[in-house]
Design a protein around this nucleic acid. Structure first.
Length: 678
RNA sequence: GCCGACGUAGCUCAGUGGUAGAGCAGCGGUUUCGUAAACCGCUGGCCGGGAGUUCGAAUCUCCCCGUCGGCUCCA
């Protein structure tokens, strides 16, 4: 049996005796999804548990039907936790994966931290989707500052040069507990204590003087960890619960080669160049300001123009899709929100009541009660259904100050909301129709790839489990019927029903939550909605809530980043800019004005460059920086030639060519009318 | 809200105890030039706010406010 006081380099157990690289290949758990035996014990409770048990926070079924094995998306922390729980360490594969490399990098970082900060206690340190982290507590309440990262990284570099082996051993639970008690590592002791009696042995890894509770596997030695960069430090709650003490987490990224690391850093730089907050300022699209208040947005003329074009398209599509457009006020009597259940279920996101004539009013956090009142404004017959109300409805929700983020997370936003009221037998068709409608709209805006999630019953919910199961199967059925791949996101439904979420993938492959299609059998009940059936009886309609683009604010932010500010022609604030080569030649100025006039007559947004006196290259550069799709130079040469041809510069594709003005107008008109997304 | 970083001119930033700086933008002038930055000049700042330490604070300390990266939560 392994002993904790083994001499460096000694083989302390049968695992170690054979612990040379070249072990048989063992399956490596993916960092996100893994199969969980029903009732399996983990540190966060039995599995599968309710959504409050974080172990099973996001389980899914790996196939269809109840008999399919349940898989859990385990929080990154759990990886290490349940790795320890599994007892026997995993054997190393022939070829380490990126996950193994990053997990090893986390160990090495902890080793460096423990050397540089004696008394530091370490919690868990798993790989993540693009790197790794480790959580720490420093003695006497000290904290890391970002300046410490350079020192830690430097020490890691020294450990890399020493090519320290990752030495594995297996200890009995009691032995491991004693070891970590002696090392004054309470987090590890806690993990061991939570393993339960079923677990006899745990894995231990040693790197130099650093010892960690870990299942492994790891790279053979620290020499593999040359391409590592520590990124930032963050505060995190112990075991992810905000009632707990806050630890500090250091994030890093690790790659096999320097080149891969550089490429990763370049991707981050590209994301920064596309940041909608930066482009929003540079392109004068929108602003947020301290004076205005956090989470509130001002749409400037350029952004306002893009928004108008988006909204025009949206209205046109909805009218064509069988929706009726409606409008509703920003505040209403608070009683409406008591009836809807929001006061009970959504309170933490709602602003306080506002008193008018001594009666409480509520700034609206959602649009649904209004559409319900429109439904209730008259007796409805089965012949009227389905009824589809759509509205660009501005709502206000309280968000904690730390989560506000440009246009992507705000406190006041306009949802492109719709509510469908239908007969129970119509629900499947309506859900399917909405799904198709959404995917079609996304394609128009250049999002061909969409990830789809089915969110099921949360802990805090209205309605019977039976209703929920039926509703969930309707949603699932429509997705399957369309052969749409999806994932189940258990416990993530709203309080009134399950939902389908659609997340678009942008040009950088990032996922953004936009559409949500929510089944609701509780609001019709809360508001006592009815329709008269064919046989004259009273029936309760079913409701579907649907946001498509999500909110105008978020969608605009996503669009800006997706296109890096280079909007397709139909969305561009200025579609074509005319640049006079000589400002002081009246014939040239007249020609520029004439070209602008003809483009405008074709329905295009065209303008003359507003930089008189500047040189041509400067004017071109200025238009390029403002992401104007087409720039047309007109000069004395064109006037003298008099053949109505001009030079057109295509700033997105980089081409430059001569074209008759009439052809240019027609070409751009067509491109804009077709709403080409490229 | 919590951990960390940051807050200096419209924007990007330099300035770490001794008289507030640069580039770009803006304005004025010269230049009229054929596809990503002509030249000269000028304007512009209660250095986020408040309190303190000091002969003296953009600079050091404390408290607020805000922004950014995370945590938690979500459209």
């Amino acid at each position: 049996m392994c002993r904790r006081d083994w001499p460096a380099g000694a083989r302390c157990c049968r695992w170690h005796a054979s612990s040379r690289w070249g072990w048989p290949v063992a399956p490596i758990p993916k960092p996100s999804w893994r199969t969980c035996a029903k009732g399996a014990r983990t540190l966060r409770g039995d599995c599968p548990g309710s959504s409050s048990e974080r172990c099973c926070h996001r389980p899914r079924r790996s196939g269809h039907g109840d008999e399919a094995p349940v898989q859990c998306r385990v929080m990154p922390e759990d990886l290490v936790d349940d790795a320890a729980e599994a007892g026997a360490p995993l054997e190393a594969p022939q070829q380490p994966t990126l996950e193994i490399l990053r997990h090893s990098a986390a160990h090495l970082m902890a080793a460096a931290v423990v050397e540089l900060f004696p008394g530091a206690q370490y919690d868990v340190g798993p790989p993540t989707s693009d790197g790794f982290f480790y959580n720490f507590r420093l003695p006497r309440g000290a904290t890391f500052s970002e300046d410490d990262l350079a020192a830690i990284e430097k020490r890691m570099g020294q450990l890399v040069e020493r090519r320290l082996p990752f030495e594995r051993s297996v200890l009995g639970r009691g032995e491991a507990r004693a070891l970590f008690s002696e090392l004054d590592q309470p987090f590890k002791v806690d993990i061991i204590d939570r393993l339960g009696d079923a677990v006899d042995t745990v894995g231990i890894y040693r790197t130099g003087d650093f010892v960690d509770l870990c299942r492994g596997p790891h790279v053979p030695d620290s020499g593999w960890l040359g391409a590592v960069r520590l990124m930032r430090v963050a505060g995190v709650y112990w075991r992810g619960d905000e009632r707990n003490e806050q630890l500090q987490r250091i994030y890093g990224t690790a790659w096999f080669t320097r080149e891969e690391l550089d490429a990763h850093l370049e991707r981050l730089a590209e994301a920064e160049r596309r940041d909608h907050r930066r482009l929003g300022r540079e392109l004068d699209l929108f602003s947020v300001s301290e004076e205005l208040g956090g989470g509130l947005v001002l749409w400037h003329p350029n952004g306002g123009l893009v928004r108008s074009v988006i909204e025009d398209h949206w209205r046109e599509a909805h009218r064509g899709g069988g929706y009726d457009l409606v409008f509703s006020p920003h505040i209403a009597q608070r009683g409406l929100w008591e009836t809807s259940g929001h006061v009970d279920f959504f309170a933490e996101n709602m602003y306080g009541p506002l008193f008018i004539d001594e009666r409480p009013f509520q700034l609206k956090p959602m649009n649904c009660p209004f559409h319900i009142l429109i439904y209730k404004s008259q007796a409805r017959s089965y012949r009227d259904l389905p009824i589809r109300f759509a509205e660009l409805g501005t709502v206000y929700r309280y968000e904690r100050s730390g989560v506000l983020h440009g246009l992507l997370r705000v406190r006041g936003f306009t949802q492109d909301d719709a509510h469908i009221f239908c007969r129970p037998e119509q629900i499947e068709g309506e859900i399917g129709r909405v799904v198709d409608f959404c995917l079609d709209m996304f394609r128009t805006f250049g999002f061909a790839d969409v990830n789809i999630y089915l969110s099921t019953r949360p802990d805090k919910a209205q309605g019977s489990e039976e209703d929920w199961r039926r509703a969930e199967s309707v949603l699932e059925g429509q997705l399957r019927q369309r052969d749409i791949a999806y994932r189940v996101d258990p416990g993530a439904g709203t309080f009134y029903g399950p939902k389908i979420d659609m997340k678009v993938l942008d040009a950088l492959g990032r996922e953004w939550q936009c559409a949500t299609v929510q089944f609701d059998f509780t609001q019709p009940e809360n508001f006592q909605l009815e329709y008269t059936g064919e046989e004259g009886g009273r029936h309760r309609p079913v409701m579907v809530h649907r946001a498509l683009l999500g909110s105008m604010e978020r969608f605009f932010g996503v669009l800006i980043e997706h296109y890096a500010g280079h909007f397709p022609l139909w969305l561009a604030p200025v579609q074509c800019e005319i640049v006079p080569v000589q400002d002081d030649v009246p014939e040239v100025v007249a020609l520029a004005a004439a070209v602008v006039g003809r483009l405008r007559d074709a329905g295009l947004r065209a303008a003359v460059s507003d930089k008189p006196g500047e040189r041509l290259p400067k004017k071109i550069r200025d238009a390029e920086l403002r992401r104007v799709p087409y720039v047309v130079a007109v000069g004395r040469r064109d006037v003298e030639r008099g053949d109505d041809r001009v030079t057109v510069r295509d700033t997105r594709r980089g081409g430059q060519y001569e074209l008759a003005v009439s052809d240019l107008a027609e070409q751009l008109r067509t491109e804009a009318a077709e709403k080409r997304a490229d």
